[in-house]
Amino acid sequence: RTAFSSEQLARLKREFNENRYLTERRRQQLSSELGLNEAQIKIWFQNKRA
């Protein structure tokens, strides 16, 4: 289980509010910017949509 920092969570929530689905390219960008792997971001979005 991933423990996200408050900064990472704030960024993910802001991104989710703008778009509930990420393109592969956007997921790669977020992964690089947040220091998370793409799978972690993908799962976070899946869980948030559920």
Rank of each mutant, 00 (worst) to 15 (best):
K48W: 09
E15R: 02
S32E: 14
Q8R: 02
E15W: 03
N19P: 02
K48F: 09
S6H: 11
A10M: 08
K13C: 15
A3F: 13
Q40K: 06
F4M: 09
L22S: 02
E33G: 02
E38F: 04
E38L: 05
Q40D: 15
F45V: 01
I43L: 13
E24S: 14
R1D: 15
R26S: 05
R1P: 14
W44S: 01
E38V: 09
R14S: 10
L22D: 09
T2I: 12
T23K: 03
R49T: 08
A3T: 11
F16M: 02
E24D: 13
Y21P: 04
Q28C: 08
S32W: 11
I41F: 01
S5Q: 04
N17V: 08
S6I: 09
Y21L: 07
A10P: 00
Y21E: 07
R14V: 11
E24W: 07
S6K: 14
R14F: 09
A10H: 07
Q29I: 11
S5P: 02
Y21A: 05
R26D: 04
I41V: 08
Q46N: 07
L12T: 00
Y21S: 05
N47T: 09
T2K: 10
R20M: 10
K48E: 15
A50G: 07
E33C: 04
F4N: 02
R49G: 06
A3G: 12
T2R: 10
T2S: 09
F4Y: 07
G35C: 06
R1E: 15
G35V: 03
E18F: 08
K42I: 14
E24F: 08
L36E: 01
R20E: 09
L34W: 02
R25M: 10
R1L: 14
L34S: 02
F45C: 02
R11A: 12
E15L: 04
L22Q: 02
F45W: 15
E33N: 03
I41D: 01
K13P: 00
A39D: 15
E33W: 04
Q8S: 03
T2Y: 12
I41P: 00
K42G: 10
L9S: 04
L12D: 01
K42A: 15
S5Y: 02
R14M: 12
Y21Q: 07
L36G: 00
R14K: 13
Y21C: 09
E33K: 03
Q46F: 10
Y21W: 10
N37C: 07
L22C: 05
K42Y: 12
F4G: 01
L34A: 01
F4R: 02
K13L: 15
F4W: 06
E38G: 06
R11P: 01
F4C: 05
W44T: 00
